[in-house]
């Protein structure tokens, strides 16, 4: 008899996975998603829950280097996987170039979609199919931003893609922010 029909708890499954270089061996119920594992059990809350349905991209993480929606991944299926979250990309003192570019371009407001945007952008550049703003827009369309920072996000990614120094905010002209 399956757990859905009975009142019994589902049998936990043993999983070993690496998150940001740290190996975790866990005993998990099958219904724990990768996102909920990160947020509620490993307390890595950088990955955000915006819809829990693969429709917003806020939960984007890198699994074995590929960007995926962690809300639709069952953690038990990721045995042996290497997960990179926003916390693993950089820290406030040692920002990843993509993180620095997002700050320099004011590529966010509320910041809630931001970790997903950044992980997605890093994943996208690894994929190698984004060669300019038009392709960036299409290939980033799985990351919604309700604050509407899209143009700044594309500028930030384009700078990071070209590996060039992002213009620094702070100069007293509007153009500098563009």
């Amino acid at each position: 008899m399956s757990p859905a029909q009975s009142g019994s708890a589902p049998e936990p499954v043993s999983v070993t996975l690496s998150v940001n270089g740290q190996t975790h061996t866990l005993s998990l119920e099958p219904s724990v998603t990768l996102l909920d594992l990160l947020r509620e059990r490993l307390h890595l809350t950088g990955s955000k829950k915006g819809c829990d349905q693969g429709q917003c991209g806020a939960c984007t993480v890198l699994v074995d280097g590929r960007r995926v929606n962690s809300c639709l991944q069952l953690a038990v299926m990721k045995d042996g996987a290497e997960i990179t979250t926003i916390e693993g990309l950089g820290t406030p003192d040692r920002l990843h170039p993509m993180q620095a570019a997002f700050i320099a371009h004011d590529a966010f407001q509320c910041g809630y979609c931001t970790p997903g945007q950044i992980c997605s952008a890093v994943g996208m550049l690894g994929e190698g199919h984004a060669h300019g703003p038009e392709e960036i827009r299409e290939l980033m369309s799985g990351n919604l931003c309700r604050c509407g920072a899209y143009t700044n996000i594309v500028d930030a990614i384009e700078d990071a893609r070209r590996g060039r120094e992002a213009p620094t905010l702070g100069t007293p002209s509007l153009e500098a922010a563009e």
């Binding site: 399956s2 757990p3 859905a4 708890a9 589902p10 049998e11 499954v13 119920e29 099958p30 219904s31 069952l74 038990v76 299926m77 045995d79």
Partner: peptide
């Protein structure tokens, strides 16, 4: 979402 069992084939 309901709880469920899991088998890795």
């Amino acid at each position: 979402m309901i709880n469920f069992g899991y088998t890795r084939a």
